[in-house]
């Protein structure tokens, strides 16, 4: 499926100021894998050494946060947009 991944804030910076990437993948997980293949600098910025997504990374498919979908197994369709957003937290 042809989907677009949008990189916000720090995640775009990690990819070398890239803000939008087109990939072809059937699920959210494979889309993220494809993103990392295209931009290896994101590998350790998105996941820890055991493959877990970092706590402060917000992942949305269109308008829905992945936790309320099927997690990384969520299937994506042609034209879907995946958003990688730095979580807003803290404040001190």
């Amino acid at each position: 499926m042809a989907v677009t991944i949008r990189l916000y804030g720090a995640y775009g910076d990690f990819a070398g100021s890239v803000r939008s990437v087109a990939v072809d993948a059937p699920t959210l997980r494979t889309a993220l894998d494809a993103l990392v293949t295209l931009h290896p600098a994101l590998r350790e910025r998105l996941r820890d050494e055991h493959g877990r997504l970092r706590d402060h990374l917000g992942v949305y498919v269109n308008k829905n946060e992945m936790r309320f979908l099927g997690g990384e197994a969520t299937r994506v369709e042609d034209g879907d947009v995946i958003h990688l957003i730095p979580a807003v937290s803290g404040g001190r």
């Binding site: 720090a10 995640y11 350790e44 820890d48 937290s89």
Partner: peptide
């Protein structure tokens, strides 16, 4: 950093340019 996790940056020219190291990993 919170969003991208911890990392180690290395300079070989006293801070003019930087390279990101492979993370320490358990």
């Amino acid at each position: 950093q919170s969003w991208g996790g911890p990392r180690i940056e290395v300079s070989r020219d006293l801070g003019k340019t930087w390279s990101t190291a492979a993370n320490p990993a358990f």
